[in-house]
Write a protein that binds this DNA or RNA. Structure first.
Lengths: 130, 130
DNA sequence: TCGTTTATGTTATAAAACATAACATGAGCC
DNA sequence: GGCTCATGTTATGTTTTATAACATAAACGA
């Protein structure tokens, strides 16, 4: 699912398209940028280029505004979300590492015991002893 | 998966983006349009707007050209593909219909036999007798 | 209540991107 | 050599976008 992620973060949409997709005015979209709520890329000619993720973000902003939040509030929410997602990423990194450790240990045990075939799992690419 | 289909056929990409995504020149892209190989939408101001499907199509065209095909050949291939896809669609429509018929028949049999509970399937929304 | 801030509208001006059309051209073909 | 095909190049006009400045209604705070 890394391909999809890439597609969603490709900056390819010009202002006009984003306006239609979000029903926001150019003024609003640019203002939210000054408030650091979205950071579109720029083309060589300095045109703003948005990704699908940016569009989603703008729609989120709209929702929060409807709920009465102000720019500062939305900024705060977004920064929290980012912290959360980074935590999750770190969590996953750790858990993967633990998993590796487990595999390695398992391997050690097998070798120590002298190939008794407790498990019929094919050897993992991680092992490669020596 | 109907949502994805919709997203892929949304005409939102301007010429410049498509040029980068395909490594084709504007001249080429427009020429393929005169050859009816792609039919982008137009914005209010007459700008061409492409969908992700269009981009894929342009990449296909590029491949076929590299293989030595000419416009007529590519046009032919595309029209064949369309026929095929329509056949498959019709096939699916039919098969779904058959399935419905089967369910209805099954139901008829159940009622004729007087509720003997041969199957424990919950009644389908299709039945609604009378 | 008055002065501020906030979010957005409006207008002016310049530049970038795109459209159409016409002419140019090298490769392949008869 | 003349023709077609796919594409390049150039010219000209329109659309879209950028930035910036001024305007304003609503909310807010003193």
């Amino acid at each position: 699912m890394k391909e999809k992620e890439l597609r969603r973060s490709l900056a390819v949409l010009p202002m006009g398209t984003v306006m239609k997709l979000t029903s926001l005015t150019a003024r609003q979209i640019r203002y939210y940028e000054t408030q650091e709520l979205v950071k579109p890329q720029r083309s060589d000619g300095n045109r703003r280029l948005y990704s699908l993720n940016d569009v989603d973000r703008l729609l989120e902003i709209k929702d929060y505004l409807d709920e009465g939040l102000n720019m500062a509030g939305i900024r705060e929410i977004f920064s929290q979300k980012q912290v959360e997602s980074e935590k999750r990423k770190e969590e996953q990194r750790k858990s993967l590492t633990d998993d590796d450790v487990r595999k390695i240990l398992h391997d050690e045990i097998l070798r120590a015991g002298g190939l008794q075939g407790m498990s019929s799992q094919p050897t993992s690419p991680l092992q490669k002893p020596f």
